[in-house]
Write a protein that binds this DNA or RNA. Structure first.
Length: 521
RNA sequence: GCCCCCGUCGUCCAGCGGCCCAGGAUCCCACCCUUUCAAGGUGGUGACGCCGGUUCGAAUCCGGUCGGGGGUACCA
């Protein structure tokens, strides 16, 4: 490792949504960069035009923003592009890849392959069946066409893909920051296609070129890319050995590299994030797209904390860690090596803890998007909320804060406090209003609440007095009143709820519920 | 098939030769508190995949085995 401050990168392929596993990789890169005063680059790997979409790219940037992983270089949601080593979308770097390929061709590092996908697939299939000689590895020794063949294919007008020659013997060894020494024999490594027959660059080439061109010092990514390391290491060497990358950059007029840059010197391959069934994370595991977690009312800081702990720990048993602590303590070499299952129950617990610690104003502010129609099913407040709605929300927060694990739960509590014509849960009618103490309790409540002082203490005294008067336990008396006033058997504490709802609305609801109770009795 | 990686409570982590008949968190269960639901408190169930070896001593080191995962694309 050099003394240079690290330059790390997160470079998703923009197809589909940003996945929790990817976010974890992004977070680790982010933490590493912040810890060491380095630079976090965000690059879009859209070399595969058939899969990449602008919509996906945009949603990934928004997701990164929401979860708070700010990048130092790369495109942003507002169209702004930061950093002096762009462009940061590979679809805009085609000229560079072509210039690199021309040089590799001139250097004799590359050979054409005229085989069709069908031919290649047939060849592989036979090897997998144990036919063919030797391992199913593509090597120039057996794959390179003769000059006669090349002449014939060209005469037929066929266009080849281009493969990079890999060494025939020896080994590639990497000292991975999380896995330790990993070694591959070159005879086991296939010659990768670096340019498709349509002239576009493939991942192995584009990714390696950009990492070198943008001065990436540490490649930290998912374990699924571990096996791709030897050929990328090879390309890194090829690009830097004779300053080939610098010539190519100059030729196409892209920003020159910093003179102090060499090539990526370290690798860190992160264990996979899997579902509770230990299978690859997918839609059937519930939430995988991170915007889904926003909709469900998880706090971004909860995700940051939780994801950081998925494969890493500070070692002292602490689990609740704030961002500055994460940055101060995070260490790639302390990352575990085995796959981690994503346990949403534990995430939920973390989230509840953090919600409970929010200030009333902060929590109220965060609840707005769940009430104004942005994320919730229906809009209970205006967007933006009126001052009256906001103060009502601030009044509601202390009643519900300690019983919430997700912000979206406010959608269940809020109607009783924001809506006039409340519906009573039919199940609650059946279980509570239709049974004995209901009518007496509700009628009694109407009576004692009609002229009581409107404060929690006074309501408390009045209702407890009512229970005594009725000769019943307070719980039995309170439950019908709760259903009458909130519409549900589950609600925040009764006196506080009644106080917040207000006398007029409370009495109207009691009157209505009394009728319902009499009818159901 | 071939290459690579991995293997401590259901799950996430701690453990880096004795402090471990394995610790924390989460989940689950019980009890306490209690106006519902929560929150909170107390207690409990629960793991070193297996077999050999090294060593006075192994969850920790070595070998094997079994199991899981990734790759084996003109996807990334």
């Amino acid at each position: 490792m050099s003394d240079l401050t690290p330059r790390v990168r997160f470079c998703p392929a923009p197809s589909g949504w940003l996945h929790v596993g990817s976010v974890r990789a992004a977070l680790y890169n982010f933490l590493h960069a912040r810890r060491h005063g380095g630079t976090f680059v965000f690059r879009i790997e859209d070399t595969d035009a058939t899969r990449a979409t602008d919509e996906s790219m945009h949603s990934m940037m928004e997701a990164m923003r929401w979860i708070g992983l700010d990048w130092d270089e790369g495109p942003d949601v507002d169209g702004e592009i930061r950093g002096a080593h762009g462009p940061y979308r590979q679809s805009e770097r085609g000229a560079l890849y072509a210039a690199v390929v021309r040089r590799l061709v001139d250097a004799g590092e590359v050979y054409p392959d005229f085989r069709s996908s069908e031919e290649l697939e047939a060849w592989r299939a036979s090897h997998r069946r144990g036919e063919g000689e030797g391992p199913p590895v593509v090597k120039a020794a057996t794959f390179e066409h003769t000059p006669e063949e090349i002449a014939r294919f060209e005469a037929e007008g066929r266009v080849p893909s281009l493969r990079l020659r890999t060494p025939d013997d020896g080994a590639f060894v990497v000292d991975d920051l999380v896995r330790g020494e990993v070694r591959w024999e070159w005879e086991q490594i296939s010659d990768p296609v670096i340019q498709r027959s349509d002239g576009s660059a493939t991942y192995p080439l584009a990714n390696s070129v950009d990492d070198v061109a943008q001065g990436i010092t540490l490649i930290c990514r998912g374990e699924d890319l571990l096996s791709v390391t030897p050929r990328q290491g090879l390309i890194h060497d090829l690009l830097t050995r004779d300053r080939l990358i610098d010539e190519a950059l100059a030729e196409v007029g892209m920003p020159a590299r910093d003179p102090s840059w060499t090539q990526p010197e370290a690798f860190a391959h992160l264990p996979m994030v899997v579902g509770m069934d230990r299978k690859k994370l997918s839609k059937r595991h519930g939430s995988v797209a991170i915007q889904e977690f926003r909709r469900k009312g998880f706090l971004p800081e909860t995700l940051r904390n939780f994801l950081a702990l998925l494969g890493w720990s500070p070692g002292d048993g602490r689990e609740r860690l704030e961002d500055d602590e994460l940055i101060a303590l995070f260490d790639l070499s302390a990352v575990g090596r085995s796959a981690a299952a994503f346990d949403e129950d534990k995430l939920l617990s973390f989230n509840g803890d953090r919600i409970r610690d929010l200030s009333v104003e902060d929590l109220a502010g965060r609840l707005v998007e769940h009430l104004d129609g942005t994320l919730g099913e229906r809009a209970l407040v205006d967007s933006p909320p009126t001052e009256a709605q906001m103060s009502r929300l601030v009044g509601l927060v202390p009643l519900i804060q300690e019983r919430m694990q997700r912000l979206d739960e406010v959608e269940n509590y809020a109607p009783a406090f924001f809506i006039d014509d409340l519906e009573i849960d039919p199940d609650a009618v059946d279980r509570v209003l239709s049974k004995p103490p209901a009518v007496d309790s509700i009628a009694g409540a109407r009576r004692v609440l009609s002229d009581v002082d409107w404060s929690v203490d006074a309501i408390d005294t009045a209702l407890r007095g009512l229970a005594e008067e009725l000769g019943s336990g307070f719980g039995r008396v309170a439950q019908p009143i709760r259903v009458a006033v909130t519409g549900s058997t589950v609600s925040p504490p009764l006196f506080e709820s009644i106080e917040l709802i207000g006398r007029e609305r409370t009495l109207v609801r009691l009157e209505h519920a009394e009728g319902v109770a009499r009818a159901a009795a």
